[in-house]
Design a protein around this nucleic acid. Structure first.
Lengths: 191, 191
DNA sequence: GTATAGAAGCAAATAATTTGCGTTAGTGAA
DNA sequence: TTCACTAACGCAAATTATTTGCTTCTATAC
């Protein structure tokens, strides 16, 4: 009955999923969003509409699925120098990507469906990336903020502004990072 | 051609808007979300579907419109004691409402449409509410955080968690408030 | 190989959306 | 008040999307 979340690679099901995802990405990139329909996606992916309906349910769920997979980070954050420098560079790029037209729309697509699974996946991606910096800092003996503080006081303000306000300017993002870093040094001194 | 954002009160257009909004609210409260369709909404509101299509465009836009109006605060935040106490009480209630099933869905509905006008409206509502506390604190000579700090370090973490993670627990919310308040006293002492 | 089950294709039936055109009801000027 | 005007609504036909029953395909395990 139910469709596998992760189809066996190489199988027919995986090929269909890839073709449909690619079709969606192409169409979102080239045409007006309002003109992207399931029958059109199906046609471009060489698949029947009913296949998409049965597998994803409706356009919103399909878009949420595609968006979540696009929001998955490609690899490990770059190593530049100290954990702090790595973090600063990563956050700057993260903010830029999320604030871009495409990024903002991906966030919305992921949030548009009642099922929160896709959105939670994105939160997990971000925490996993940030954990890398924490591990690096620990290995280097650098003082570093906790994961909770990074999420609450850097990621959250950035995303909130992108969703409910204007995109945060780079200077503000730097200040958010600087503030959390400063606090982590203080708490280390106190502790 | 275009429909007025705020129809003249008492006019036919305003009556239709009210009937449709009410119909949406009733249906969202009583039936499964997936079964809420424009033809059904129209029927319950005693209106033709084409009226809704022409005025709102599609279901998502209608839901976003209804959600934004439901997210508008009813009145001024309650006065309890100090500005800080007022804020604490307000934030607690805010977090509860937004984290509830209904609140979370309203947030999603507002974010689901490409047009950010509705979402920005919600951000503005929140800032306006918070400004009240700032004004009260100033009148009382209490030290108080800035609007930016309140938004970045209290509202943003709460909303981010609701959207991308689990709802924040009350204790964490209190800590967020306490931390921002503590910083505002420090910066006052330094300044 | 062959059986099996999950997933895809096809096509008919249903439901939603769009659109052209006629009608209604607020609005503002005489 | 009346009258002309126009934005918004209703109606219904045309189009398009969605659902569904049934058949066919294809990986997988035996």
């Amino acid at each position: 009955m139910g469709y596998r979340e992760n189809p066996r690679p190489g199988g027919r099901s995986a090929r269909v999923q890839a073709a449909v995802h690619q079709s969606v990405r192409d169409m979102l990139a080239t045409m007006d969003r309002a003109d992207v329909t399931i029958p059109l996606i199906a046609q471009r992916a060489n698949v029947t509409p009913s296949t998409i309906y049965r597998r994803w349910g409706d356009l919103q769920k399909l878009l949420a699925d595609v968006a979540a997979s696009r929001l998955q980070p490609e690899g490990e954050p770059a190593r530049i120098g100290s954990a702090r420098e790595d973090l600063e560079a990563w956050v700057e790029q993260y903010a830029d990507e999320m604030a871009s037209g495409v990024g903002r729309q991906l966030l919305r697509d992921v949030l548009a469906v009642p099922d929160s699974a896709n959105a939670e996946k994105c939160g997990t991606y971000t925490r996993r990336q940030l954990s890398v910096f924490i591990a690096r800092a620990e290995a280097a003996g650098e003082p570093f903020p906790t994961l909770v503080d990074l999420m609450d006081h850097i990621i959250s303000p950035i995303i909130y502004r992108i969703l409910f306000d204007q995109a945060p300017d780079p200077d503000h993002v730097r200040k958010l990072v600087a503030k959390v870093m400063a606090e982590s040094r203080q708490s280390l001194m106190r502790g």
